[in-house]
Design a protein around this nucleic acid. Sequence first.
DNA 1: AAAGCTTGTTACGGTACCGTTTCATGGTGA
DNA 2: TCACCATGAAACGGTACCGTAACAAGCTTT
Lengths: 122, 122
Amino acid sequence: MSIDLRPSQALGLWHAATLEHLRIIGPDLTIRQMAILLHIYLAPPPHTVRGLAARLGVTKPVITRALDTMGAMSLVKRVRDDRDKRNVIIKRTVEGALFVEKLGDIIIAEGRKLPDRDGARA
Amino acid sequence: MSIDLRPSQALGLWHAATLEHLRIIGPDLTIRQMAILLHIYLAPPPHTVRGLAARLGVTKPVITRALDTMGAMSLVKRVRDDRDKRNVIIKRTVEGALFVEKLGDIIIAEGRKLPDRDGARA
DNA sequence: AAAGCTTGTTACGGTACCGTTTCATGGTGA
DNA sequence: TCACCATGAAACGGTACCGTAACAAGCTTT
């Protein structure tokens, strides 16, 4: 199930997908925000501020601010945990799911487009 | 030569590689800077400010600032074009080549590690 | 050589991120 | 009940990005 990439393929894929990401989505998300968003949508819930901070190796305010920003974009939403009201559960949204799906489409499309030539020579 | 990814693979790879990128490299590069850096190292030279701006669909000051930042990190360097002294040719550096190579290693490693289970349910 | 175009840089005001610290709120254990 | 701990948010000063506009320096054209 794992995929085996050659260096030129790996970097070519990253390069192309990053360009497409910028073209379609814009520069509005930082790498950290991307990581947080992907984690919320790909790792099994529930997600909390503390849990995300620990998993990503950042401080809690980083998560709080990222949730502020991405919440304003409707990519995620916050819900208080009723069982422990100190907790905030981060929920997925329809917009966020579409966003992540679009990102996946970009990667898949760029993977298919990978050229035959070896474009990576550093 | 192209690679065919399923959605869960594409997003899983992106997710894992983004996390590793943050863990190893840190949050010091924006998505735009990543795109610029990869373009410099993967697309055939010569690279100019204007050319990069056109290719990436951004304004020239964005490129100038990115070159300032990445130059301070020794990831790229600027050289005046002797034939047309208005031009600046962006050159690769040893540090930058190592950086890009490390990024490739991360992607390859995460591709190999992709799990059997379908981790993507949005 | 003087006007005009091209190239890359700098300046400006605004916005958003960063890490650290402080805080309000809610649960927990003696 | 009353310290005490845990959680997430807000405040603070600093830094770096953003887009637009203005700019200096170098070709080019007549």
